[in-house]
Amino acid sequence: MEHKLTISPSPHLFSRRSTRGIMGDVLIALLPALAVSVWVFGFDVLAVTAVAVGSCVVFEWLAGRFLLGDGGTSVGNLSAVVTGVLLAFNLPSNIPLWLVILGSFVAIGIGKMTFGGLGKNPFNPALVGRVFLLVAYPVQMTTFPPVDGVSGATPLALAKSGGLDAVDYNSLLMGFKSGSLGEVAALALLLGGLYLLARRVITWQIPVAVLGSMALFSAVLWFVNPGVYMSPLFHLLTGGAMLGALFMATDYSTSPMGWRGGLIFGTGIGVITIVIRLWGAYPEGMSFAILIMNSLVPLINKVRR
């Protein structure tokens, strides 16, 4: 026989979707928010993002090459790039660049590769990096550049300290507000999220559960006492709500499997976020909420059965 036939068990047909393709889709979905961020904060944004992506990829390669023994090939699946962009999105644009590198080290080195790499990490790597920086370098992490000449406090911080007079929902939606460089552009993030939904990279359950439970919880409080509590819309458009719900909570390896688990997981995140925002020490609780719920994922996966 001149032809050497290939033999394999069925199926013999495979979808074109690959890990790399999925990560590529996530990157595409993050582009509009990045563009808005550059518009709002200037070119510092690109520097921070480039450094974060670069150092994440380098750390991934180093860990893969010298610790996991995969020769650093996991860089090719673009997941380190996604982690880099997401980490950058969670940092102020005027952060010292050496902190970005440190954050990347914690995110990739400790948050991901120590557990064995992609798919094995229990916590969202980018959030591990962000929370580490937030706790270790609170000043640098909460000093935001001024937007349109307005002082650099985030709307949530203002609301918490009672310094917020009038809410301009339009600028909240478009991104003209103070905050981490990637979280401000609510509308652009929503656009990216819709792209991911349309490409079936993510399912609707987690984002809807996160945003829905946030809205519901804050709405109840708002109806009870609108003088003290902010409106649900305000909560949805500020802080890391959109970024967290659409891009961070939906991270595959740190979220539960299946739709039922997704709803439980998302609801937990939404409720914890609002609790931290209103009664916690920090003005924003999205990253903590996601990490807390990350730790419950194995349990949720078991309950779902």
Partner: peptide, 10 residues
């Protein structure tokens, strides 16, 4: 490559 726990199989 490694399982990314996307849950698509499920």
């Amino acid at each position: 490559s490694d399982c990314i726990k996307c849950g698509k199989c499920l």
